[in-house]
Nucleic acid binder design. Sequence first.
DNA 1: TGTGTTCGCGCG
DNA 2: ACCGCGCGAACACA
Length: 570
Amino acid sequence: MSASEPSPAWRLVGTDGDGEIAVVELDGAGAEISRAGVTSGGLIELARTHTDDVRWVWSDTARWYPPLLAAGARVRRVHDLRAVRAILRTAESVPESARLPTHAAWSAPAAWEEAPDSREALFEVETIAARDAPSDLASGHREFAAQLAALDAASGRLRLLAVAESTGALVAAEMRAAGLPWDVATHTRLLDETLGERVGGSRRHVDAAAAAVRTALDDPDVALDSPPRLLRALHRAGLAVSSTSKWELEDLDHPVVAPLLAYKRLMRLLTANGENWIATWVRGGRFRPVYVPSGVVTGRWASSGGGALQIPRSLRPAVRADPGWLLVSADVAQLEPRVLAGMSRDRAMARAAAGTDLYAGIVSTGVVTTRQEAKIAVLGAMYGATTGDSGRLVPRLRRAFPAAMRLVDDAAVAGEEGRVVSTWLGRTSPSAGSAFTRSQFEASLDETDAATEKQARRRARDRGRFTRNYVVQGTAAEWALCWLAETRRSLLALTAPGAEAAASGPAQSGAPHIAFFLHDEIIVHTPAELADQVAAIVTDAAARAGRLMFGEFPIDFPLDVRIAPDAGKP
DNA sequence: TGTGTTCGCGCG
DNA sequence: ACCGCGCGAACACA
């Protein structure tokens, strides 16, 4: 948010009264400097030639950016009105006086206001909001002015979040346009190795596992794909299980266990990522999912189509660079406890995180004796575990890292009491739903019964675990967004010192591009000769993200970086 | 025949 | 059992 300058600070694009595209240059305060109508070709030309630091403003990146990308044009910086509005509408750090006005066209439908505890309603609203974000100039200008005022009145951290969120929207569109390089031959080979070769309409190893299950159960007709019928078959065989789930079967000592688990594993791969998946989702050597930035309430990304965020690790070798290109794969170890240390300013925890292995660092403080115990304790602290090994170990963590634990414990109490919580940069959790509120009210009445009280306590605990995890998962998502944005910025600077290079799309110009992003992991597809520089950029971006988020507080974000033709892990 | 729910499992 | 997701298959029901 720069001060008023003679040159334009913002470039608002939208449609005019006739549905034609117009571009308005705005000064730092958001006041109009000039206005011009353009054709769609003219807009592309504008994006190609204007590689300055003027920030584009538009209603929705998913609406405006794909055509530019298809024409090989990219923009450097953007303010995405839809994405920023979603943050500002609920952010606690925006004072009441600066809250966004409810414009009919932007606001959520009544269904959402009335049923805030319905995940389905939320999904509907987000879908409608994305489709219906008004793209006309007048709405955009009015909305932008309101957002600038709200951001001015909010914290600097929320302004950082608005920028990071908008940049994330750019990356999501760019990743879809570029696609993830996917080698069908490798994928097919992995399927053949794991599932066995095709026999008729089936697979050899799948058939063998199914036959072994039927033998072990002495039941030639057992239905393996129907949980209820399989459960009855297990009961007939004398197995005392309440479900057919993997974790329950693992503990049993019975000859059916091994082949049944194998069958489940193979069938999962076949149905989720078999030939059908390849035929549906891979075209021209690229997997192109739709990424949905902030599709998760915590601010994490979601995806739509092809299960982009659930690609099994066993198929990672099918992510394969083009000839002459390489993949730089980087992920950060134990991201969530590291951001917890940063946001709680817990110096003891930061010291434990100083090496590359936070869990080993915790062991060396003496609070637990093994790495596995450290891991279970930390995950339990962030998820709100109360029972088992995890619940038993958490109190030790509370003594060793009081500041960190107080932060998550406070978040849990807030949730149990029906309050909202916010991430480090200021994304605020959804408010308690009507079912929660009604339940707590009914339990508070004099004539309440034990069942109602029990139900209310359970709902309170459930919401407490959600808000406890929200602050950590959401802040981790913010760190990752900063990392992504810093990586993108440096990659652009690496290959686009002049206007010409920036004018070309990534694949056409031979420039490195972000090909995949998954919570705490980035994959860059790059010409081989630039791979070392890209690895340095990704590493440096992680350090920058840490400073953007937590200033000089000494918390490390060490990366595992791998340069290879494929994205498999050795 | 189509629609919505539940289970189970992949990812972090 | 302790957070957040997407997706496919089976199934209940219209």
